[in-house]
Amino acid sequence: MSDITVHVEHLTKKYGETLALDDISFDVGKGELFGFIGPDGAGKTTLFRLLTTLLLADTGTGSVAGFDLVKDYKNIRNISGYMPGKFSLYQDLTVEENLKFFATIFGTTIHENYDLIKNIYQQIEPFKNRKAGKLSGGMKQKLALSCAMIHKPEVLFLDEPTTGVDAVSRLEFWEMLKRLKDAGITILVSTPYMDEASLCDRVALMQNGRIMTISTPGQVIRNYPLSLLSVKSSDIYHLLGELRDYPGVHSVYAFGQSAHVAFSAQKIEPEALSEFLKKKKHESVEITRIDATIEDCFMELMNSPE
């Protein structure tokens, strides 16, 4: 199948006794923007290190652009761009020197692939004589992405590119990814932020080294089996515990200033719940019916037995 760029079957990786990746299988199509969503320790970085041939899997096989992860690792290194979670360019070299260095070791020049990185690089070009270590977080990200792109890779692996970046830069960054995707580049991106899931074509929700589900963000939400209410009260601390005792409640999570209450029953009566809470002496109770977010789905998947 030529339209599959990344193919992985039953990958398993152990660090000593800890199972970092547990029987992972998935396919990523050509030109797809594929997200791995999961909390810290879910195994995202390990998976990316396996795919970029920095680590060897214990069992399982995989290929990137048709090249075997073990046998053809040299080819993979030529056609993939990797942006590790930790900023790992030379801090004591300038922006331009970093970019030039990575261009030359891939046997190309900045000039040759300038079109590809133009949109991103233009934003940091005014600072091209500044040392990379002296850039702000968002600019570092842009430089790292430029360096990962400079050899015109077929596949991009971005490991938590938006962690530690402000909200505006995050949005900007996703805009850039969209443009790269439109240029036909396959992008695999990992993130701990659930709200970024909706920006991907497809997402894999990961937890404890396992993929819980792979689907489009819309489908993930549609598959949510429960009904949701958002409940607000002045006493959120007691609210959580008391909601759990309410009949028909499946689960309760704190969600910012409110509590998300999931009911397994289809028919729910917000009025009855409101009465119940008032009896418990809660003031200024607000109850709204809401649609599930990726985070609600994630919580549900995390707790449901296989």
Binding site: Y82, P84, S88
Partner: peptide, 10 residues
Amino acid sequence: GTIEQINVTP
């Protein structure tokens, strides 16, 4: 961490 970036190059 720069070794990571070097290692994924050819």
